[in-house]
Design a protein around this nucleic acid. Structure first.
Lengths: 154, 154
DNA sequence: TATTGTTATACTCTATAACTATA
DNA sequence: TATAGTTATAGAGTATAACAATA
């Protein structure tokens, strides 16, 4: 729903008054999010990861033994929709499912060595992208922006 | 992909380290956008409008005679996906399609009187929502946030 | 009785190819 | 030849209902 900067000048986009929409926080937040995520998707495709895949693997990396239920709660994914993601990461040998130490129903998720190696690269790619995507912001502005965004959703 | 503030405390969401993801601009922008848009959707359902419907009608309101092509270019909607939206707004008597004055292929879009009346209410609802959604931001912070977001996508 | 993970399935959103009529 | 609008359709993303195993 956003015309990202990298799209062609597209003559038809010119001469339209979008000033009202640009006063709306939701519109601005959504367009900024889409602009960044568009590039994020491109870069992550190198690893065969979608945005959600990256989020899942990243949480598993920083929370060894995390359960599907916890991933769903933190990433707003519905359980049925996470099943395929986990299965896919498992098939690719990126994660391992181990029995949960205290709850027989649950399964603890862990990165495999190759999953860990890949995520180190992927997180570095994400870090590089962060710099690029926010290249027109000073470090102070970048910090401010994140703080204000978190004031909205946290 | 965001656990909005209004969701239940959800015990499973606790105890998970999300600090890394929270350093990523894309993650923060997306969660903030989803948090606002979630409420936006609820409020607009009163008018039977989805988020994209609102954007379309708002651009038509502020740009009488705008074409489908221009709407697509400015809102990043693909032409085939706009057809149904326009048709629906037309059936509801909110917009009118008039022959384009200088291009026989194109159709100029205009709000009908009832469409205009509804959009006045809808835009007021959106304005009220803006205040609520950003209630933890000072007016200065709100202004800064919008400026920084536009620095990313514009 | 409630919860974790799962299957099956439906619904919505987004994307691609190809057509028509005008330019 | 290119563009505006359209159709049909495919694919991705998101949603609900119901089940087995465990708490």
């Amino acid at each position: 729903m956003a015309t990202s900067r990298k799209s062609p000048p597209s003559s038809a986009a010119e001469g339209v008054d979008t000033r009202y929409l640009e006063t709306l926080m939701g519109y601005n937040a959504r367009r900024a999010a889409l602009a960044i995520i568009e590039v994020f998707m491109e870069r992550m495709s190198v690893y065969g990861l979608k945005v959600v895949d990256f989020s899942v693997l990243s949480l598993v990396a920083h929370n060894p033994g995390i359960t599907s239920r916890q991933l769903c709660a933190n990433l707003d994914i519905l359980p049925p929709n996470l099943v395929g993601i986990i299965a896919s990461m498992d098939r690719r040998g990126l994660i391992e499912r181990r029995p949960h130490p205290s709850d027989g129903r649950a399964v603890g998720l862990h990165l495999t060595p190759s999953g860990l190696t890949m995520m180190k690269d992927a997180e570095q790619t994400a870090a590089d992208l962060e710099i690029e995507a926010t290249s027109r912001l000073s470090p102070a502005e970048r910090k401010t922006l994140i703080r204000l965004l978190q004031k909205i959703y946290l």
